[in-house]
Write a protein that binds this DNA or RNA. Sequence first.
DNA 1: AGGGTGACCTGTCGGC
DNA 2: TGCCGACAGGTCACCC
Length: 271
Amino acid sequence: MPELPEVEVTRLSFTDRIAGAQVCSVTMGKPLRWALGCDPAALTGRRVLQVRRRGKYLLIDLSEGLLLMHLGMSGSVVFSGHLPAAGKHDHFEMQTSRGCLRLNDPRRFGAVVYAASESDPVAQKLLGRLGVEPLGGDFSLSAFQVALKSRNTAIKQVLLAGDIVVGVGNIYASEALFMAGIRPTLSACKISKPRAALLHAAIVRVLADAVAQGGSTLRDFSNAHGEQGHFQLQAMVYDRAGLPCRRCEAPVRRIVQGQRSTFYCAACQKF
DNA sequence: AGGGTGACCTGTCGGC
DNA sequence: TGCCGACAGGTCACCC
């Protein structure tokens, strides 16, 4: 479920409430993608300072060290003063003085990893290769145009790779390419500078819109209050194979790139 | 180094 | 009803 907007919506929904809390206990369920990397009991007594985001990672700053949380494909977070007993897919739980933070992740592609600091090799292994933040001030158009020129791969897959710009996953890659009128199969290095400028703007707009809509809830995403997102209702092409394009009525096409579905309108996306 | 592929894991849905 | 394959929001280790 989680691309940048869902992760950001999650962060916004609990960072203010958990900030300042003291960790009472940490409990792990089944193994996630990576081990926590420390004794859960060692976290007891530390304070939660704030929750930041880098790409699709939540960074939970503690008074000493930090937790890097990734939601994988199916993860979601709840934070509440009163939660029912942990279920079979609850694999991380942190009791604090202000409530309980819980990660539910049926597929367990997600992870929670402890690092002593953001520059710690443990953290750098996960964060070190990430591209720029699309919603920060660092997402430079000219650098984006230059970076695309160095890649001889379909633009859809370049966006998903996340090493040029982070946070664009399978939904928003299709949506941004639609918005920019670019064929998802076009090699990144063949995109003209003006088209790349349209794509740059489309990425920012689609991600910001999605955050404003509370993210996309395809099956089960919800923020830390349990509220669902609504962006999926305004998706132009994602998950609309065979349905009429919302702009021109031509049927939306579905293709497979890198074993992932891509949706596009052949009439609206000709470049 | 960039690009392609399989792997990880569980649940759901459609077809027969 | 049951079984089976396809598919699902991500990313990494591994080949060439």
